[in-house]
Amino acid sequence: MRMRLAAVLALAGLLLAGCGSRNPGAGQTAVYMLLDTSGTYADHLDKANRIINYLLVTLDSGDSLYVAGIDSSSFSQDNVWISTTFAGQPSKANQQKLAVREALNSHLDALKPSKNTDIKGGLLQAVQYLEESRAQRRMVLLFSDLAEDLPKGYVRDFPVALDGIDVVAVNVTKLASDNVNPEDYLNRLKRWKTFVTDNGGRWEVIQDMEHLDRRFQSL
């Protein structure tokens, strides 16, 4: 009996060695990308395209991808351009990725720069979508200069439940005024970090696009 048990255990070890390379739980990631379309930042959308392509290559079957724009009033479903969960069959997922790419191309072609920048509204929208996705790993990619400029009368001064969400600011460019006084830039980053961490999220700033790959690997 002991011999047979040992045989079964040895065999199980042999077989587990076979599937050791696979990442268990893969395919449970949801990424919500917020693109700043305000006047000062709209010129950087080429870089955003590269990031989206990277996401399309990286994300696997079962993962979710959302792409939304940040404009004067971002807390709106109309701002969500892409909302998709990739199918279980990899070939279907590939077709979905192609469709996403084409839809984004048409969106970006028709895009007009907005006057104001409602980042927190977009973030609130992102939280709702990520909550619905029920993904194990949730991330918001904030493609913006982080300079919020709300239209008159808009209220965004309330807590947002960011528990378990990684908020990663990408390509945070410096404004003209930041060059005059760099402390403004640093204070802006600090304010956002405080906002995210106070609301239970994890904050990170990535300036170099290559570091984004490392960040995804560690997800």
Binding site: A26, G27, Q28, D60, S61, G62, S64, T85, F86, A87, G88, Q89, P90, S91, A93, R134, A135, Q136
Partner: peptide, 13 residues
């Protein structure tokens, strides 16, 4: 993965 599906969107896979 093509035959049985890799993962469902809701994590049932």
């Amino acid at each position: 993965a093509e035959m049985v599906g890799g993962l469902g969107g809701t994590g049932t896979g």
